[in-house]
């Protein structure tokens, strides 16, 4: 396509004029319509992927999405895939230093978004028989769809739960906000587990031991290796397994790759 110089230049000039909205008032009505559409689409997409950040930032979210779009234009074509850089981008914003938890809250939102788009994993209870039939060094635990882990120096799960509750107009919302505020004041840190038992991503606080265990599984360590790596902790596989099964976190066993 490199020989199509005129069209390349014309199209690049138009898309640049639409993305560069600084002089919007001096532009034509048609160009302004495209600029408004781009800004509205970006804000809508970011609010879907980052519901907690959208609520936390409130009226400033339009400006935030606009600024982020200038730094990270849409490159995948699908708005659902746009915005992975936001957590790191927020961490670099000196104007937001009074809200040090914002970046980790964004990371949690993004993991939930990714979890709900991840490939489906079916529960395979029959595969449990492999535990009795094969050497555990040759086996791997299969987790549910879209499992992510987040170690945060902030109470990200408390903040996330309060804002989720607020979205659903839950009666518990004031109490959850009060608890989140207390956790922030106490500088509480949290390990978060994100997983998708069915269609909606779930989030809960886990302890450091389970965090380390799940890290092994996400790294696709063979079962024996994963258990050996947990030997310095009080982790108990027999206790963990039924709870993980009930929570829809455990989906089966498979031969290790």
């Amino acid at each position: 396509m490199t020989s199509h110089n005129q069209a390349l230049q014309t199209q690049s000039a138009l898309i640049s004029a639409i993305y560069n909205q600084n002089n919007a008032h001096s532009e034509s009505p048609g160009l302004m319509a495209y600029q408004r559409s781009l800004a509205a689409n970006a804000k809508r997409a970011l609010a879907i992927s980052y519901p907690t950040i959208s609520q936390l930032v409130g009226d400033g979210f339009s400006a935030l999405s606009h600024e982020f779009l200038q730094d990270y234009p849409l490159t995948a074509g699908d708005w659902g895939e746009w915005g992975s850089e936001l957590p790191l981008w927020l961490a670099g914003k000196t104007a937001l230093t009074n809200y040090p938890y914002l970046s980790d809250c964004a990371q949690l939102d993004w993991f939930c978004h990714q979890s709900e788009r991840a490939a489906n994993v079916a529960l395979d209870l029959e595969s449990l028989s492999l535990l009795a039939e094969q050497d555990a060094s040759q086996l791997e635990v299969v987790l549910a769809s879209g499992v992510f882990l987040l170690a945060s120096s902030h109470p990200v799960v408390d903040i996330w739960q309060a804002h989720q509750s607020s979205q659903q107009n839950d009666e518990a919302t004031p109490a959850l906000f009060a608890a989140a505020a207390q956790s922030i004041a106490a500088q509480k840190s949290q390990f978060a587990l994100i997983w998708r038992p069915q269609w909606k991503a779930q989030v809960r606080v886990i302890d450091e031991t389970e965090f380390l265990w799940l890290q092994q599984l996400l790294a696709k360590q063979p079962l024996t290796t994963a258990l050996d790596n947990m030997s310095h902790t009080n982790f108990n596989f027999e206790t963990w397994l039924p709870k993980a099964l009930q929570a829809g976190l455990f989906c089966g066993i498979k031969p290790a790759n």
């Binding site: 199209q11 689409n41 234009p73 849409l74 708005w79």
Partner: peptide
């Protein structure tokens, strides 16, 4: 940022 998507359907000559 090559390529960038317009996020919209833009007219061609």
């Amino acid at each position: 940022f090559s390529p960038v998507h317009a996020g919209d359907l833009l007219p061609i000559a």
